[in-house]
Nucleic acid binder design. Structure first.
Length: 422
RNA sequence: GGAGGCGUCGCUUAGUGGUCUAGAGCGCACGCUUGGAAAGCGUGUAUACCGCAAGGUAUCGAGCGUUCGAAUCGCUCCGCCUCCGCCA
């Protein structure tokens, strides 16, 4: 959400933001609703002032004077009800429109129609060269008996999977290693709820736009697709002391995504599953663009360093306008090398939002002058499992069908340095 | 799942339809006093929205309702506490 005053004064910027992000948004319609809203509001407030004034008189008034006032107030009440009904209607429209206003993308965000237009800004690592016919992660894991996709589908349905034996161990090793790695960067560890109320999803900007991609449970709760939702909800409706900023969290949670718009994509294996786990970095900082940029770079670099410590070749892209979410100002994707597809696949992204989310969630802090301000928010993937196993398996496979474990993970694998066939 | 209690200004609390523009105490800030401090005394002590401003409006967990008028009455929801049941 943006400040309505900002929108009023910068409608051309908002129009341009919608164009660059390739979203439909009618600023004029919002401004018209806003004029109506303010006009009705001031009329209502006038009437209420009159009512409040009469209240004081009525206490002292007796006899015919009293009945006169009562008569007058009954009439005023009718007018007030009419105005309030009208105001309510306008507010519904106003709020729907306000939730749909796109945040302004940064000037450094490239133009583009799809993720194909994202721009590579960094490349790291040496791509593996195989002296044998490399296998896909599905094949490798099945042969090593560390995953079971068939039974995954039998039990959990489409996109289901089991991890087993060293596959299960490896996934947990990654979580533990990630927690330690990011804690050492100065982030506070959390385990966050996945089942959340509507508010946090509205606040983070997943609702109302992506209703279809969320699983809904009974009692109007949803299964979040990322710990970002719960971690942003954590400080909802709070005023944080300035000295406590920045807040730096690293949160683990199960994640659920319906992947409704991608029925035919990546239907096999571990790239795109309904149910996975993710360690997520979240930052709340003071409200300045420079702070946001600083922490954005920092968060992204953390993830790069984590991937580097596993020795997986990757590249970083800056996402183009149409590949940004409604609230995102700028986003980097980090993509890992997937040999069998001969391409890089996304493992995570780092975004900043300015006060887009904190406005919706009412997360504020007191600045140096004692003024209450909306904080800025950012988030970044630390690591997502099991997706990362795709690159681990395919990049580190050996001629004999075994898979080497990256050095950094060995201590979390009970000293195991490779996974071999039984 | 059943029964009951509760949610008021940072904290503790008063308040059962108009005199509440919510009172008191604690805390905090400033001032007086003092060699300095404590005590004492005095003053102040939210947020949001509309408006150029004067000013106005809203907020007593949230929403809806009754009423000319709601912290106060009714309904729904959320949260907390106590007891019973069930489960890990």
């Amino acid at each position: 959400m943006l400040d309505i005053k900002f929108i009023r004064e910068n409608k051309e910027l908002v129009k341009e933001a919608a164009r660059k992000k390739r979203v439909e948004f009618d600023v004029e319609k919002l401004l018209k609703a806003d004029d109506k809203r303010r006009e009705l509001l001031s009329k209502i407030e006038e009437k209420r002032a009159e009512q409040n004034g009469a209240n004081k008189e009525i206490i002292k008034a007796v006899g015919p004077e009293r009945s006169n006032i009562l008569e007058r107030m009954k009439f005023l009440k009718q007018e007030l009800v009419t105005l309030e009904d009208e105001h309510k209607k306008v507010m519904v429209e106003w709020q729907i429109l306000m939730l749909a206003v796109p945040n302004i993308p940064d000037i450094s965000v490239p133009e583009g129609e799809s993720d194909a237009d994202n721009k590579e800004v960094k490349k790291w690592g040496t791509l593996p060269e195989f002296s044998f016919q490399p296998k896909s992660h599905i094949e490798i894991m099945t042969l090593l008996d560390i995953a079971d996709f068939e039974r995954g589908v039998k039990v959990a349905g489409f996109r289901g999977y089991f991890l087993k034996n060293q596959g299960a161990m490896l996934e947990m090793a990654i979580w533990q290693y990630a927690q330690k790695f990011f804690m050492e960067k100065g982030l506070e560890p959390f385990i966050a709820p996945s089942m959340v109320k509507r508010e946090s999803l509205l606040g983070t900007g997943f609702l109302p736009q992506s209703e279809d991609d969320l699983y809904k449970v009974q009692d109007d709760k949803y299964l979040a697709g990322t710990a970002e939702v719960a971690m942003m909800g954590y400080h909802m409706n709070e005023v944080i002391a300035k000295e406590k900023l920045p807040k730096k969290y690293v949160a683990f949670s199960p994640c659920f995504r319906r992947e409704i718009g991608s029925y035919s994509k990546d239907v096999k294996g571990l790239i795109r599953v309904h149910e996975f786990f993710k360690v997520e970095q979240v930052v709340l900082c003071e409200a300045s663009h420079e702070e946001s940029v600083k922490w954005h770079e920092w968060l992204h670099r953390n993830t790069e360093e984590f991937v580097e410590s596993l020795n997986i070749p990757y590249h970083t892209v800056i996402n183009c306008g149409s590949d940004l979410g409604l609230g995102q100002v700028k986003k980097y994707d980090i993509e890992l090398w997937v040999p069998l597809e001969n391409t890089y696949r996304e493992i995570g992204s780092t975004s900043y939002f300015h006060d887009f989310q904190t406005r919706r969630l009412n997360i504020r802090y007191k600045d140096a002058l004692g003024k209450t301000q909306y904080a800025h928010s950012l988030n970044a993937t630390a690591i997502a499992t099991p997706r990362i196993l795709v690159s681990l398996m395919e990049n580190f496979q050996q001629a004999d069908g075994s898979v080497k474990i990256p050095e950094a993970l060995i201590p979390y694998m009970n000293g195991l340095s490779e996974i071999k066939a039984k």
